[in-house]
């Protein structure tokens, strides 16, 4: 058993190094690993397509499941059999004469997708439109920025505010928050203006609107880039740990 685990780990390390070797340049070792990878992946797909998709979602629903133990009987719905001929139409793409028939299953898939888009549009974007209508007039001028939810006692240590006082602070909009909200709305509208295709933006002001829109998009993209870095580096560190800690049993 321990021997088996060592072999299994070694296989993993071998292929990891093989695939990494492409970072230097394309080579025979990489080609070797790549083709095995593609073969195994295609093999796995062929297994998983039946065992985890078609068997459960098609075959069992078509033939039903008899009652067993505490689980109840599930009736079989023979109409699922219709899907097989529709699917087979796709294979007509190989035929020179009847290749148009491959558009039938494609049409069904795309038709379902299209209907869903129209149906779901509001659920997806309605809340976002509402969420963008941020208030920009401060409700209080007692402080320009939002006060902290704690104060200092005589000893100089932090003490939380009473719940009532904290609730008042939470319910108010302060000037700095209002300013942030205003920047939010302006960013949204300028960025949206960048995506107007059929209106020629004439004049210096409108064109600069467009340019600023693009800059603000870049700020958003930069932030997105930065926030995925941790997850990606964690993976490469884990690979190193797989080699050094788990396989060579060093550095534990």
């Amino acid at each position: 058993m321990d021997q088996y685990l060592f072999i299994k780990l070694s296989v993993g390390v071998f292929f990891t190094i093989g695939l990494y070797s492409v970072l230097y340049k394309e080579n025979k070792f990489y080609r070797f690993c790549e083709h095995i990878f593609l073969g195994l992946a295609a093999g796995y797909s062929l297994v998983a397509i039946w065992t985890s998709i078609l068997y459960d979602q098609w075959w069992l629903k078509m033939t039903g499941v008899p009652a067993e133990g505490t689980s109840k009987m599930v009736p079989g719905y023979f109409m699922y059999a219709v899907l097989l001929p529709i699917g087979l139409c796709g294979y007509m793409v190989m035929s020179k004469k009847h290749n148009w028939m491959s558009k039938i299953p494609i049409g069904v898939i795309l038709g379902l997708w299209s209907g869903q888009q129209v149906k779901n549009w509001w659920t997806q974007y309605g809340a976002q439109i509402y969420g963008s209508m941020q208030p920009v007039i401060p409700t209080t001028w007692s402080s320009l920025s939002r006060p902290a939810l704690y104060t200092f006692n005589e000893a100089g240590a932090k003490v939380p505010l009473s719940p009532d006082a904290a609730a008042v602070i939470r319910s108010n909009i302060y000037a700095t928050q209002a300013l942030s909200n205003f920047i939010f709305v302006v960013t949204l509208v300028t960025a949206l203006s960048y995506f107007l295709f059929n209106f020629e933006l004439k004049g210096k002001f409108l064109r600069s609107f467009n340019t600023v829109g693009r800059w603000l998009l870049m700020v958003g993209f930069g932030a997105l880039f930065g926030s995925t870095v941790m997850a990606r580096f964690a993976l490469v560190i884990d690979r190193m740990s797989f080699i050094w800690n788990e396989w060579l049993k060093l550095g534990r």
Partner: peptide, 21 residues
């Protein structure tokens, strides 16, 4: 297990981690 867990899944992890480079 050797093919799937030992080889295939480790290759997936290796390829995924290359994004860091």
């Amino acid at each position: 297990d050797l093919l799937f867990d030992g080889a295939y899944q480790q290759m997936e992890a290796a390829m995924f981690s290359m994004i860091a480079f």
